[in-house]
Write a protein that binds this DNA or RNA. Structure first.
Lengths: 199, 199, 199, 199
DNA sequence: CATGAATGAGGGTTCATTCAT
DNA sequence: TATGAATGAACCCTCATTCAT
């Protein structure tokens, strides 16, 4: 009865959605929600802008979908780091490697979360969730650091300072890579960064 | 006829300019060039939007003025760090303290430079200058690090990695403070950050 | 190869056409040509919007088909009233009963004709025809009224006024029923309305 | 301090508002909320469409303002008819004369209320208020008719039918005048219409 | 110097219509 | 016959900017 099978349509839909999301990610990461035009997204995805509205209610929904994906990723890593076996240093090292890898592969996602804070146009709900997640992340990190200090594996000092510095470093790398990664494509290795926390 | 002396007018002009610039800084830092509306700036500065056009040709000029001010500040610090007397570590430490202080007092300026990269609306010239400056800053930092390593004051390792990590840390702090400084107002002290470079 | 006979296809075609027309009628009557979306029509008819274009060239054609059907109905009644035997009052009474019945059964059709006047999107030709028909109807009515007055069956007075009032009453009932028929489902009987014309 | 006095601005604002409302009234009455474009309103009012947004939040607000004005007018007439001295017939006659006059002067307002029912775009609140008002009006009318019947001044018969027919007649005149008033500019006089209710 | 009325380019979004399957 | 993916014209609205006062 159906001219294209339902299955085919399903596949097309899913592919196009991902296609558009992928194109939007880079743009949102670089320019933010407001400064990114739907036309830009459509052009980057090589579809008409009308089609984008076939798949997403509006620009905000594309943005929100992406940011939630990013937040989910962070949550997942955080939970693993908290619950995994090993010494505190092992776990912080694992966490750091995950983050650094994420930054290298997709610095966009980190920038997206930051963009969440830069515009009134972002739905309040999303901004709140992003903020909570960020705070939760710092908390987890601080907790691991305290444990590490107790085990003598982490340098002494205010754990808030250490968590803040470590996290800032990661965040700064994402920002840096997004904006001058093409001109200065240097990524420090994990050792360099972990040195921040070593005794 | 005129109840105001020319001098008074001069003073008023200058005060209003600064007033508007000051109001615009926070807004641009948080929202970027495009998402910041002239009305917002005028409201924040408590003047009519028409008046803003007496003092600045357009929105771009306000933005440009602010970014150039920020870049000039960076250049000045950089040059001092390069030419000042003392051991390499002394000079890096001084540079770090200047940056950290700047971030605490006015994280806006750092964000402004980042915003420069986020929008096509920014004049090409300005973006180029900001990029050059950023690269020059990393270069200076790397140079000091190399000198410090030769003097045995800085930890061994790829100086590019070290410079990149150190710089990312500072940048990350600015971003973090701008966006969740009000919720998580923790600033690491200089020692914590300098630990990144210590042997 | 084809499991369906040509005849069956014929029947399906005709049924679907009527189905779509029926669904469109209510929507057009309530919302007008522009505010009624093809998607709405398709949904109401329980077909895909693509299918609607198999049966009709475009939205305008659906609207036009419906309005013409409405106008044809009016013409037919008018002609019968003009040519039927009986006293003038008999014929006016018959005309009134036909109208009232039509309004009760399908107030949509009357509204459709009104909608014809509300939008530039309606083809000029159709609007003109609707206007002509309306004028012709008033003319016929006035003619019957004059005859009735001569026969002493209709109250004295300006026949234009009488025709206009009588016609307005009918039109008003259609409008009223369409828009608050569900809240105030009262229909006056023919006697009440005919009283307008009785001596 | 102010270049134009506040008073002057006040006046300009008020004049322009009325100007735009006036232009919008005819258009909304003829075409409804959705089919009336802001550009049309602006053109009719001889201002840029941007200016319309200086004075009204959006198209809906213009429409709402007009409809509320119309409803207020109806309420006022209704209340006067209910509370004024005189016999029931006197009061119905006064009510009829007010309505007929209103229809002649500004059939637009009556059409506006009808348009309220034709589009989902109209705020629910407004539609509800319009419906209530319409029902209240019919109620008032029916009440007066009952009193008139008791006084022997109104023809016997179902008062709901009488009220409905009388009201339909008025409404139909507004519709008719709006849509073919220019071609058939006949208005029945009050006597013709009142005959509907006379014994 | 200061205000805010006025303009219109530009961007978000809707929806009629086409067309591959 | 039937579907819905895809396109783009057209409309709503925002906001940078101009200018009369």
């Amino acid at each position: 009865m159906s001219p294209r099978t339902e299955e085919t349509n399903q596949r097309i839909r899913e592919e196009q959605r991902q296609h558009i999301l992928h194109a939007a990610r880079k743009l949102f990461a670089h320019r933010g929600l407001i400064a990114t035009k739907m036309t830009d997204i459509a052009n980057a995805a090589d579809v008409s802008y009308g089609l984008a509205y076939h798949y997403f209610k509006n620009k905000e929904e594309i943005f929100t979908t992406l940011v939630e994906r990013a937040l989910d990723g962070t949550v997942s890593i955080m939970e693993q780091a908290r619950s995994m076996p090993g010494t505190p240093l092992d776990r912080i090292t694992w966490l750091g490697s995950q983050m650094l890898e994420g930054l290298k592969d997709q610095p966009d996602y980190t920038m997206l979360v930051l963009q969440t804070f830069t515009s009134e146009a972002v739905p309040q709900r999303l901004r709140e969730r992003a903020l909570e997640q960020s705070m939760a992340f710092l908390d987890t990190l601080r907790q691991l650091i305290v444990e590490g200090q107790e085990a003598g594996q982490i340098v002494a000092g205010n754990p808030d300072y250490l968590a803040s510095a470590f996290s800032a470093c990661m965040q700064g790398l994402a920002v840096g890579h997004t904006f001058y990664g093409s001109v200065y494509p240097v990524y420090p290795d994990l050792n360099t960064i972990m040195h921040l926390l070593k005794p």
